[in-house]
């Protein structure tokens, strides 16, 4: 996998995983009944597989994946990449526990059937689940905080390097937040919508959940639009002449280079279409037409996901590092 592709897949998926977890936490709080919980349980299947695919994508890019797995968090003192990896690792552990507490639940967990058939495990797992179940929300909150606050921050900071002026901007973190909450939360909403469309039955809280999704979605689209605007107008001016030059070169490539199409597609799909679908979703919810809402929720996710992939492609693809403009500066005596 080429360098950029693996970065794109890794960052988008790992951030989505955080969002998916947050979505499940919301569901956790919304679930008023066993039926609700049973309905929502399916959504718990999103987070862990997504982050695992992301990790595979990243490791496949490393020269020595196994060594990387063991050593990447070796340099917490100064390396934001190490911090990012550590935060992600802890998040994944908590996310696995949290997910397990959903899917192994004894009354509606989808794995409960399998577990009961296996020897030893059939005794062990339910016992563990029983002990930890009261802590599920707490673990979920911990994972969400770790993922959303620590991991996202470390991740954004690891890209906000002086040498990469186009990343070294206040918009980087918002971009990541948008991926997390827009693509991540709607991913869960989409899965649940599919489930709803297949069975045509849902807990009461599903409507509330979709409302929550819509709210978050609209907030994120607004944030995204602002960030993209700030990004292409380079409102936050770089700190040095050199950085400014690299930033301008990046802008040039973004607007007129080979990534220009991606940028405009992202605006149309990732902001425009998503917003249209979100408005439709809200209208459907007002009209209480849940099926339409479900279809639109799926559409929101699909467009948001495509938009984020496109956006991340621009993010990684059209960066002009400082080293490329450095000769010009070294030559001015």
């Amino acid at each position: 996998m080429s360098g950029n592709t693996s970065y794109i897949i890794f960052t988008v998926l790992s951030q989505m995983a955080v969002g998916a977890l947050i979505a499940m936490l919301i569901a956790d709080f919304l679930a008023k009944s066993k039926e609700d919980a049973k309905f929502f349980e399916t959504g718990a299947w999103v987070c862990v597989p997504v982050v695992v695919v992301g990790l595979i994508a990243m490791l496949s890019h490393e020269a020595r994946p196994f060594l990387a797995m063991l050593t990447m968090n070796n340099h917490l003192a100064t390396s934001w990449l190490s911090r990012e990896v550590l935060a992600l690792t802890l998040f994944v552990i908590l996310a696995v526990v949290y997910t397990a507490l959903w899917v192994c639940e004894s009354e509606y967990g989808s794995l409960r059937g399998i577990i009961s058939k296996l020897p030893v495990i059939s005794a062990l797992i339910p016992a563990l689940v029983k002990i930890f179940m009261p802590l599920r929300k707490i673990i979920g909150v911990l994972a969400a905080v770790l993922g959303f606050v620590v991991y996202l921050y470390a991740s954004a900071t690891s890209y906000m390097m002086y040498t990469m002026p186009a990343w070294n901007q206040p918009t980087t973190l918002p971009f990541f937040i948008v991926t997390t909450l827009l693509a991540g939360v709607t991913a869960v909403a989409a899965v649940l919508s599919v489930k709803y469309l297949m069975n045509k039955e849902a807990g009461k809280s599903f409507t509330t959940f979709l409302w929550a999704t819509t709210g978050i979605g609209v907030a994120m689209v607004v944030l995204l639009a602002a960030a993209v605007y700030a990004n292409i107008t380079m409102l936050p001016i770089a700190s040095t002449e050199m950085a400014k030059m690299a930033q301008l070169a990046t802008l040039e490539d973004m607007l007129h280079g080979e990534h220009a199409t991606f940028l405009w597609l992202r605006v149309v799909i990732g902001i425009g279409l998503v917003l249209v679908c979100l408005v439709g979703l809200a209208l459907a919810l007002i009209k209480k037409s849940i099926s339409t809402a479900a279809i639109l929720a799926i559409a929101v996710f699909v467009f948001a996901f495509i938009g984020e992939l496109l956006g991340r492609t621009v993010f990684f693809g059209s960066i002009v590092p400082l080293s490329e403009v450095m000769p010009h500066f070294l030559s001015i005596v």
């Binding site: 040095t240 050199m242 070294l330």
Partner: peptide, 12 residues
Amino acid sequence: MATKGNLIGSDI
């Protein structure tokens, strides 16, 4: 020359 030193600047 001073300029040059500064340009390599914060890093070197």
